[in-house]
Computed example of a mutant assay.
Amino acid sequence: MGMTLNDAIIASLDEIKEPTTYMQVYKKIMERNYYDFRGGKTPWSTVSASLGNFIRNRDSRVKRIPQKGGNFTYFLSKYESEISITALEVVDNVSTTAPAQVSGPNQGFDERSLHKLLSSFLKSTGVLSKTIFHEQSNAKDSNQKWIHPDMIGIRFLNLHTQTSQAFLKAINRLGTFELLAYEIKKEIKTDYELKKCFFQAVSNSSWANYGYLVTFELNDVLIDEIKRLNQAFGIGIIRLSSNPFESEIVFPAKYKELDFITIDKLCKINPDFERFVEQVEKYITADSRYISALGTELTNFCDSFFSSETESATYCKQKNIPLDKLLEDNGVF
């Protein structure tokens, strides 16, 4: 199967790296023969419309900058730190309305099959994540069931020079990274389900800088109560999409200091968690000569992720995860 138009756009932006116009993206697609427009009369207009859809659908991979005359330039989010601050001063806000999901029961897929969707979304926002298998924990009693998050993640502060990186590490190594915890659910449809899942997330993320409750289906009637709980306890909410790059942080989590007593306890009882902490420690304490190799090692240790929406759509079909209606409308399947 060849590239979808969206994948071709992502590949082109990845090569260009800096903010660019829809016409330059179109030219790059044609230059690389990434996509067959099948004789369309104005294929550049199709590219322009598709770039707009990335923004309207809250796709985490792409951002845009308003230009004079109502035009925009587009770039990949992962290159944002390398783009001049002046160029990024005005970035437009996007709609927070979630894309419609295909209706139908979701009982045909396993909750853990959502992990790869989440890891793909997190990777696009600069977070490396790792599934924590509670079955491997040494603590088998039921009193420990709300101490394990489903997934953990790490985000590194992106500094451009070795001098600034070394200076920050010398002052405070904790300032170079943030640890995150994720509790994942297939659906949250009632107030009772929300309360139960939310306080499970509170318990499971007590040790982390940020804690999130992640769900594939969320009843919008609960938004006001979620906002209240978010403000009171600081747990963020992520609405997961079958196109992981269009997943939505409904409410961001609030920062808190790391709890090293709980981290120590999790290291003792769960080998997955302990190995993750070991990998992070090796990376943040490494000599600059070994940073690149250890970064690759950490990435390979963490959960795998999708590089395109075509891959994620194929995976969802295999796992019986309902596809977003937008994926079907765009002809991915």
Rank of each mutant, 00 (worst) to 15 (best):
S60V: 13
G2M: 09
P19L: 07
G108W: 06
T21N: 13
G211E: 05
D287R: 00
M30S: 14
G69D: 04
Y26V: 05
F54G: 04
R228V: 06
M151I: 15
E193M: 11
A313D: 06
D224F: 03
I154H: 05
T163A: 11
T176F: 06
C302F: 02
V94P: 02
D264L: 06
L128F: 15
N270G: 09
K130L: 13
P271F: 10
Q165F: 08
L222P: 01
K17Q: 15
L240K: 07
V91Q: 15
I55P: 01
S304M: 05
L122V: 02
L128A: 02
Y212F: 15
F167E: 15
E297G: 00
I263W: 07
S142Y: 11
R61T: 11
G52P: 03
T262G: 02
V202T: 08
V277L: 07
I261K: 14
N320P: 02
D329A: 13
K28S: 11
S129Q: 08
F273V: 00
L179Q: 03
A293H: 09
S247A: 09
P66D: 06
I29Y: 06
L159Q: 07
L128D: 05
L294Y: 05
T285L: 07
I188C: 13
L76V: 01
N71C: 06
F72P: 04
G52K: 10
E18C: 01
L327I: 08
Q144I: 11
Q231W: 08
E274D: 13
A8R: 05
K254C: 07
R173K: 15
F177P: 03
A232R: 12
L179D: 01
R38Y: 09
N138K: 13
S129W: 10
F177Y: 12
L5E: 01
D110S: 12
I152K: 04
T73Q: 15
C197G: 14
I237V: 14
R275Y: 13
P99T: 11
D141K: 10
L76W: 00
Y315S: 00
